[in-house]
């Protein structure tokens, strides 16, 4: 069980590494959102599942599962909110090359 959970956590970290590479590679906001919203959520969820496996059936696992549910709802939601607000408020999502709109 220990080994399995460690392997799952490492897999999740590798997912996050892909997300980080995507952040460094792409410069425009829409591509970054596309990459991050999936890969980072999947990586976080994988790591949380690995930690939950590590502790077996206990109260710790129950709390970890609550955290997992909250992460699953909140994390894609925030990306949705940010992207939608950016679109509604007139940020040009199609042809942005990193414009500074402060």
């Amino acid at each position: 069980m220990e080994l399995t959970s460690n392997i799952i956590i490492i897999i999740g970290t590798v997912f996050m590494l892909f997300g980080a590479i995507g952040i460094l590679k792409f410069r425009s906001f829409s591509l970054r959102v596309l990459i991050i919203s999936k890969i980072d959520t999947v990586g976080a969820v994988t790591v949380v599942i690995g930690v939950a496996l590590r502790h077996g059936i206990s109260f710790f696992t129950l709390r970890v599962l609550l955290l997992l549910g909250i992460l699953l709802v909140v994390n894609p939601m925030v990306t949705h909110i940010i992207t939608r607000t950016a679109h509604v408020s007139g940020y040009n999502l199609e042809e942005d090359r990193g414009q500074d709109d402060t």
Partner: peptide, 15 residues
Amino acid sequence: YLKPSVVEIAVVRAI
């Protein structure tokens, strides 16, 4: 203020 979307309202309700 900007009107939040339907999905956002539903999620904020649950949260």
